[in-house]
Design a protein around this nucleic acid. Sequence first.
DNA 1: ACCTTTATTGGTCGCACACCCAATAGCTGT
DNA 2: ACAGCTATTGGGTGTGCGACCAATAAAGGT
Lengths: 221, 221
Amino acid sequence: MTSRPPAERPKRIRKPPQERRLEIVRTAAHIALAFGLELVTLRRVADELGVRPGLIGHYFPAADDLVAEAFAYAAAQERAALLPEDEKTLAPVDRIALFVVRLTGGEHIDLSRLWLNARHLSRFKQPLRRAVAEQETVTRTALTGLIEEGGFTTAAGPLRAAVHLLVAIDGMGSYANTDAEDGAALPEDVELGELIIETAELQLGLEPGTLRERARANGVG
Amino acid sequence: MTSRPPAERPKRIRKPPQERRLEIVRTAAHIALAFGLELVTLRRVADELGVRPGLIGHYFPAADDLVAEAFAYAAAQERAALLPEDEKTLAPVDRIALFVVRLTGGEHIDLSRLWLNARHLSRFKQPLRRAVAEQETVTRTALTGLIEEGGFTTAAGPLRAAVHLLVAIDGMGSYANTDAEDGAALPEDVELGELIIETAELQLGLEPGTLRERARANGVG
DNA sequence: ACCTTTATTGGTCGCACACCCAATAGCTGT
DNA sequence: ACAGCTATTGGGTGTGCGACCAATAAAGGT
């Protein structure tokens, strides 16, 4: 028993660049969601993927670009889940209802964390700042379009109504890392999600309760 | 000329612990405001202060505590600037007007950045999370008190009105790092500060324009 | 079958960080 | 004037990071 099996050379798996690249971005997005964008590091992604760090550096010579792409990937997925393409047949009020109710449902807490993360980190990383601005614009445009299309009675036009709502959503997201144990940030009878829905109904000139009702009618909530 | 002047021993200045400690926290708060909380590091603070890193470690054996105190210090100063003690004689509506108008005036952009920074970083640092919750509570309590005292006609009580407003403010703060160059995050005719003031007036049952007017009447704006 | 291309490895370098510890020197009370 | 306390220094350890590079091996074209 003097000879050990020869150190098990890791079989080298070579993939088409496009595929490998996607794999890397997906993994990075997963890390970003679960642990935060600052942990999207060449080493970390490589570990998760079972390859060597140098390989990640080969695809992303500047690590900041990977961070930005990871965020963009996750954010795009999120939007697809909140405003699915296959719901385009629904009335605007229904789509908005689903959007808001899903968003405040509590399952998107990790997404809120990610956005908060990105908004802060974009202070230091220009590529990420760019990606955040892009994702913002896409969502704002989509929401503004829905409001226009729905013919709501807004106080100052669809765009401003959309921004009002998005600001409220980001405000709620600011509390995503607040732990109830650390001094009870909010009295428990104040539910942030409720406030967002109130804001939406206020901005769109809807009767209180309309959005939840529309969402429930479409099987959410 | 073989002998150089003996390497100029840095004169060792010994200060009373309390004073030194305050000095350290002040310096840390300054760094946090100017460069971000992640740059509040033992080395960095020591450099700024002209001492050796070990000294900072002597006062703050856990670096996270310094970060938390730096934030708390800056946040407390901010509140003192937005809701000064010596304005307690003013009517609640005036104090709230000054609070909101000062906040949206654009000079507090670095404070918004700091809050965003802290809200995100508190995900990883428990002492900071605690400090954020504390500062939040103090501000919310003060604002709720003002709303109560002012006898406004709120839709759902002073606390909820206060939270509505604070969420909107945090939402605006989310955009503190958005650079106009990176894809024009917002159409320029949408002024976030305006939206906050609108929200405040809406939540407090005030005529549009009231808050700016009250602020101007008190010499701000 | 060989040859070119390049995806992938393995390792190095320099940097910044928190944390720890022994030696030193300024201050205070006696 | 002296002694004790401790604020302050100087240096060392270990970690994780991005960037860089030469060597290697898998795939594809001819």
